[in-house]
Design a protein around this nucleic acid. Sequence first.
DNA 1: GACTGCATCTAAACAACGATCAGTTCACAT
DNA 2: ATGTGAACTGATCGTTGTTTAGATGCAGTC
Lengths: 215, 215
Amino acid sequence: MHETAAATAEVDNSARPYHHGALRSELIAESLKTISERGVAAVSLRQLARDAGVTPAAPYHHFPDRAALFAAIIAEGHTLLYKRLGDAVSVAVDATAALRDMLVAYARFAADHPAHMRVMLRPEAGDPARHPEVADTRAVDLLRATVVAAQREGALPNADPEPWVQLFWSLAVGYVTLWVDGPVEARCHALGTTPEEMIERVGDAIASLLRRPRG
Amino acid sequence: MHETAAATAEVDNSARPYHHGALRSELIAESLKTISERGVAAVSLRQLARDAGVTPAAPYHHFPDRAALFAAIIAEGHTLLYKRLGDAVSVAVDATAALRDMLVAYARFAADHPAHMRVMLRPEAGDPARHPEVADTRAVDLLRATVVAAQREGALPNADPEPWVQLFWSLAVGYVTLWVDGPVEARCHALGTTPEEMIERVGDAIASLLRRPRG
DNA sequence: GACTGCATCTAAACAACGATCAGTTCACAT
DNA sequence: ATGTGAACTGATCGTTGTTTAGATGCAGTC
């Protein structure tokens, strides 16, 4: 160590320019790291500023408040999620498989981007009135289209698709809610399986119902 | 008004005894009120203390920290929820109806006790390692028994019940997650219905699948 | 090349929060 | 009556989100 390191600083402040240069993206990146390691509640704008080597007021030039930082993460998450769901649908052999694979893809997104998922599930971070970008309907629109396709294929009754949309949406959200910070991890371990495998089985279960003969 | 009211106090401090007498229960009651009105994040031990007319340190004689207050609310919520689910199962004509009605009962619990539900869905408030009472398995045990009953009745395949347990559990948790602080309220309003009616339809949808002939 | 506009950052401050600690009060069991 | 222990006070600490006024320096214009 040829340089004196500050007590809590993460970077060498002595050589740092007045302007950080990429503070906004670093704040988001460090937030995601903190969230996946210690949860959403552990995110502090002041701590982020310290880690980035700037003063506590600097982040406020990129985000009006703490919620705006989370809103940016949510928007990023929605885009990542929508891509995953689109990929799942595009490779499915039929609408029933598409619904099953969307569910699995949703869970895999949560596994691969736990920080995004945690913030997306956090109510106070995603107030659509203050941050409209958190109300992204692309994923649910894709789900609705897949439900309608399943109805055309006879896998689902030809009635109002909305309850089915709500069912699959709730199922996905519920599973990841119980996974990213809930009891699913411990429960699966006790059952001798993994959350990744469990969501596959849940998907197979609902798909087996859809493939039953029509009543 | 024959008495001088303090600026922010909710009670008449002049006639208040040294010992509050029922501080613990009042803290919980005021928390629930705040949570249903302004969310979990708005709960502050200091504000609760002010409302109760005690000093900021008083609550710490009843709860080791903020999380312990939430843990107490979660434990209370689990008991209330288990009772609702038990009532739903006991009046159902068969296991399929029981599963449907448990789902609806779960949502109704969330509607009737939104504050309890919000805290129960809050991950950092319910760390089982620090507060074991938040890991209540009564509800999921009842769900598993109902799933097994449905298997005996032929409504569900006679395979491992756990994926089905996980499916219904996730479905319920997902719906209330999307309801108590999510987009379901606005979505139902746009669809010309209500969240109460929507969960009934979702329950009918899944029940219709269970009643289809076996494949 | 000097000038200027503007986003970016600093420095200092404020109010509110969770939490701790030594001391005070008071109901109740002995 | 006595004294023990739970409930509460009063003071304090460190941290947080947020605001304000001012300093800085890059990107373009004359």
